[in-house]
Design a protein around this nucleic acid. Structure first.
Lengths: 280, 280
DNA sequence: CGTGCCAGGTGCCAT
DNA sequence: ATGGCACTTGGCACG
């Protein structure tokens, strides 16, 4: 016997309020609801819910724009850019209001399965079991989590207005060089950032003290052969664009390079300067 | 006033049992504990706990090898390969038994802050607020989550023996070609996989029907210029290794290539064959 | 939307 | 540990 799927979109009214389809929420376990008026956030949790209660709680959480988490024994199917199957085990599933879905096991920083933001989440009962489906198009991808057993469902509603302030990126390294070009080489003059070439955009384009064209490729950390090849593509492209006799200097700026990368640099007549992004 | 930090390692006895340092657990909110003997997993949840109760529940969950989640308003400091700060907001923090830590906001597939597996988690009260610290060395990195307010703490203990079965990877594409080399080209004969060159390991090394050396670079999806450069490095390295007059064919195998990549292929005299990893 | 590239990328496996 | 590279890479910025 299969219950009809619950589609969260069916529950949202035009004005944004939410009508709940289920007339009551039944739970075989405890129900906890906590709200903090000072901060305006709210948490609802069910333990050992019946499948119907779990379904309704999950659907309501999604509709309310909460982060919904489900913990229990489940299998996971994924089909899209690749295909995967995960046998039954205890996992932590998170559904975000932006449409992202994450399936976490007890190990690893990365989720064992996931779906990116922008997906439509669907939750329904099938043969008495909770099923969460997360779909997207272009590319067509489907994630299907089927619970044998749900121990806990939680819905977390809150607010988060702030942005992460991150320091030590490649952009910071670029700023550092643009503010003090002599760090790279005495007399270096930056002329453009992100200058377009047929091979892609050059991080910094400029001239050395003798007026020779210089291409600078920036990396925030120690680099391997790929970064050297990238720099070489830019140098080649620029030399092709200029008159035949002109030569372009290519400078890789990074904290350090690997041996192989160093050899590649010599082979291609490219240079390396050790510089790190600023600490603060 | 600062409470001494709780170090989870102090709580585990040699036999694996856990003694709890705190004499009692006090909670300003609800407490729920659910276990399912059929599956052997267990969940403990506190809502609106006092800082001390939250600290003890988090520490106990870590000691028991559970997945611990904390939801509430917090600030996040990170210092390591880069540096970041996140102003106060409502976030979901997950601590895994392998030492990973994840801080999720309501948006994005990726955590806003994190710590990889292998870290030491530390939880303590400071000025009446819960602080979670996650540390690692090489590189030295520190994550610090300071809660203004904890709405819920959960500890999920379970078992997960199974591995993800994933199909459609580059390894699958390689298998496909090795099983039916004519897919690449009539008469192609694979001689080695992961053959080492000074530039790195070649995906497939072989000979065409005329006995000419062939380097094959595999990609499971549409590729850009980087893959072409990679193939070129291998071809260059092999030609350098062989006698001067020998030439090596380089073949990129992927579902498709971008325009720029295609131009690069022509420029370097490399070839492209369209092949996808198998569906199943 | 595709193309190109950075990322505190992570994870896996090799030396 | 370091290195080289795949990854359902994800994410952003730009044409």
């Amino acid at each position: 016997m299969t219950s009809p799927p619950h589609r969260s979109s069916e529950l949202a009214n035009a004005d944004g309020t939410v009508r709940c389809r289920a007339l009551f929420i039944r739970s075989a376990g405890r129900v906890g609801s906590v709200s903090d008026p000072e901060f305006g956030h709210r948490t609802e949790t069910l333990q050992q819910p019946s499948p119907e209660a779990a379904r309704d709680a999950i659907a309501r959480g999604i509709d309310r724009g909460a982060i919904v988490t489900v913990y229990g024994r489940c299998t996971v199917d994924y089909d899209g850019r690749a295909t995967s199957y995960l046998e039954a085990g205890d996992r932590h599933v998170m559904l975000k209001p932006d449409g992202a879905a994450l399936v976490h096991t007890a190990e690893g920083q990365q989720p064992v399965n996931w779906q990116p933001p922008g997906c439509d989440h669907d939750v329904f009962c099938e043969d008495g079991h909770i099923v969460i489906e997360s779909l997207r198009t272009s590319p067509d991808e489907q994630l299907r989590v089927r619970f044998q057993n749900v121990l806990q469902v939680s819905a977390f509603a809150g607010s988060d207005e702030t942005e992460l302030a991150l320091v030590g990126t490649e952009a910071d390294l670029r700023r550092r060089i643009l503010e003090e070009p002599d760090l790279l080489e005495t007399g270096f003059m930056p002329l453009a950032t992100e200058r377009e070439t047929p091979a892609g955009a050059v991080d910094i384009y400029g001239e050395d003290s003798t007026g020779r064209a210089v291409v600078v490729e920036l990396k925030r950390r120690r680099v391997g052969p790929d970064a050297v090849s990238q720099l070489r593509r830019y140098v080649d492209a620029l030399e092709r664009d200029m008159h035949a006799d002109a030569t372009v200097r290519g400078i890789l700026v990074a904290p350090s390079v690997t041996d192989r990368a160093n050899r590649l640099l010599s082979d291609h007549g490219l240079e390396f300067i050790s510089l790190e992004p600023p600490d603060e």
